[in-house]
């Protein structure tokens, strides 16, 4: 099971803030996003960024049981 969080414009586009997803096989972060977003994936204007276990990561990275994934647009703090 992985935890998936979405933030900012990604959350609004997907209508998804927080969910869990049962991993049946090793998957990339991007594949998990596609699975939880379903048809709404196409509403994202660009590929989002990802954090894996609260560190910036890559969409191509494989995720593991227990991981926390977060998808979001480029950050704009400060």
């Amino acid at each position: 099971m992985v935890t998936v969080r979405c933030f900012a414009s990604v959350r609004e586009a997907l209508g998804l803030s927080l969910c869990t997803y049962a991993l049946e096989r090793p998957m990339s972060a991007e594949a998990v996003l596609a699975a939880v977003a379903g048809e709404r994936l196409s509403t994202l204007p660009t590929r989002p960024l990802v954090a894996i276990n609260m560190q910036h990561g890559r969409l191509e990275s494989l995720v593991h049981d227990g991981d926390e994934l977060a998808f979001f647009p480029p950050v704009s703090g400060g």
Partner: peptide, 12 residues
């Protein structure tokens, strides 16, 4: 402040 703007997960 420069690096924070590119890495800290804030959205305005």
């Amino acid at each position: 402040i420069d690096v924070l703007k590119t890495r800290a997960p804030f959205w305005k």
